[in-house]
Design a protein around this nucleic acid. Structure first.
Lengths: 347, 347
DNA sequence: CTGAAAGCGCTTACAG
DNA sequence: CTGAAAGCGCTTACAG
């Protein structure tokens, strides 16, 4: 027999159904349903016969059919940017734990920072009739979700707000965090401070840039255009940005980085640089404390972000109909050395 | 009106169905189905009327009902140990990409290294009638899966093999990787080498220990019992193990660590230690190259692990019925400094 | 080209 | 305590 023999119609295999169990036990369908669901009103003897039949046939209730009748799928969708990004790991896990506590399964997907892919994924989840949706949006126009939300799909945005619709959101204080991080560098004597961030269409990126500009303005500093670089977090792009800022007649003496991926690349570039350059990064990164110098960061609490969003979602699923809310979680500056490097004495 | 007003029966909201669309367009149910699914045999005029009706009502096909009829859910389940562990990020992402390419959604869950939780999750996924399952097993007895596999649920184990059943598995070469890592330390002059690993009931942990013992035996070295420590990867446990190995009359001069979490803690402890101690760790870790010394590791390719497993799964779903296979992927030693530290001159 | 009937595997509402 | 009938929202198989 060849290796590539194919089954005719795979279907669910040949799974026994409640009907099969009922026939074998010589009872009605509803009685099987009662036993399977632990409902009362079955004599011990009948129950035993049904249970024996279930075991013999290897019956397992088809929740997919159950769901169709009950109207709730006991599943939620989580759309994030990249399942492989360590920043989202704790967020993902926190959402899972809350879902689990509510008896719901988690359907996961990455948008890859592509608005079309986000929409495609979100609508596929709606077609599966997930009870609710937690979205880290890639796009800026979520009006496509309006009919779904009206139809009862609870939706909570996390990390970034929804665009053009009014919806629950759970965010970190990107503006405040960046502002305090840049102020920290200024307090250590820096005047020429660079900002390297993610693409400006991403809400967190533009908020962090705003924090940078505000901190500079607060100190009466006017950042040179060349000190700001926004774009993808691809290592080459970030590397070029650092190199450019450190060259020229007025090189920056400190850099503020907009997220974990940017920070990692900047740390690499600075490690190979001849003069010390101060650095504060948004997002904590693993082993940041063991580098020399340790990396000073603005840490956000990704797990709390996820947990808060999921709890909000289930609150809605429990029937809460209060107005959409926005929760902003504080960030925390962790000084480890890189942010406390003074600028070189001016020549 | 109070905030906590509750809707009566949440159901799917009040979603329009094909029946509603048909009634509004004045056509039969089957015609709507044809339009929704892009099947041929509808006049342009009829199609226009139906489409108009779909748009006006905001109809979206209920895939949950579709699935019941079609027999396939176009979804797969992935059970891993911890969604927050950075090691699984790339694996998770790779599985997602393959699933996406096959039009399937990904249902995700963590076992938290608890066999009961693994089983509960796996069976819940089976009840949802996922088409297939990718499992990083926590337990060692997967006979509970036999009826499911017989009923047609394709199943592939990844990172660790199944227990007591014959099933596809995609693994990294834990034994060979650990053996070569320890041999590397021996080649650099070490004789007293410690091994700190995860709990021995975990397949990868015991295989790596076996690799350690084999490398030692190959070199004619008899490891002292105190040089081997297995247990949870909790930082306190690992810290105590390192401290114990470095104390006493015959302290180890090098340590081999069994996975990324152990390595991270050991790096922390060694950074605070007064004498240099060589280190090779299983699994690559972010920024390992920037530490001083850089951390020498045995790297495995988590993305390939995930991709290979997912491809195997869809191969099965396409009907392949060849015997269960075991794929073992090679590991790669990356020398960065910590593994090349020589032992101190003997007194 | 179009649609009425039956059925996927359950639960609901009801009757005995 | 028990079960037959109807229905969840689709697709299948068939007839016109």
């Amino acid at each position: 027999m060849a290796d590539n023999t194919r089954r005719p119609e795979p279907r669910y295999g040949n799974r026994p159904t409640m009907k099969d169990v009922a026939a074998r036990a010589g009872v009605g369908l509803k009685t099987v349903s009662r036993v399977v669901n632990g409902e009362p009103g079955v004599t011990p003897d009948t129950e035993r016969r049904v249970q024996e039949s279930i075991d013999a046939l290897g019956f397992r209730r088809n929740d997919s059919a159950r769901v169709l009748r009950k109207g709730r799928t006991a599943s939620i969708g989580l759309v994030l940017e990249d399942l492989a990004d360590p920043f989202y790991g704790p967020l993902n896990r926190a959402v899972e734990e809350v879902a689990r506590a509510h008896g719901a399964l988690l359907i996961n997907g990455s948008s890859a920072e592509d608005p079309d892919r986000e929409q495609e994924l979100v609508l596929a989840l709606c077609a599966r009739r997930v009870d609710g949706l937690i979205v880290i949006p890639a796009g800026h126009d979520h009006r496509y979700l309006e009919p779904e939300i009206r139809a009862g799909v609870a939706t909570v945005f996390v990390d970034r707000p929804a665009g053009r619709i009014d919806a629950d959101a759970v965010l970190s204080d990107s503006f405040g965090g960046a502002r305090s991080g840049v102020a920290h560098l200024i307090a250590h004597g820096h005047r020429r401070i660079g900002f390297i961030g993610d693409q400006p269409r991403i809400h967190t990126a533009s908020e962090r840039l705003r924090g940078y500009r505000t901190a500079m303005a607060d100190a009466g500093l006017a950042p040179h255009e060349d000190w700001v670089s926004l774009g993808t977090t691809a290592p080459e792009r970030v590397r070029d940005a650092v190199v450019a800022m450190l060259a020229g007649p007025e090189p920056v003496t400190a850099i503020f980085t907009g997220n974990n991926r940017v920070t990692v690349t900047v740390v690499r570039v600075l490690a190979a640089h001849d003069r010390p350059v101060a650095l504060v990064g948004f997002d904590d990164i693993e082993l940041a404390d063991l580098l020399d110098p340790g990396v000073t960061v603005i840490a956000q609490d990704a797990a709390t972000l996820g947990r808060t969003a999921a709890e909000r979602l289930f609150h809605r699923l429990d029937g809460a109909v209060d107005a959409p809310s926005r929760v902003v979680l504080p960030t925390r500056l962790i000084a480890r050395g890189s942010g406390e490097i003074p600028p070189p004495a001016e020549g």
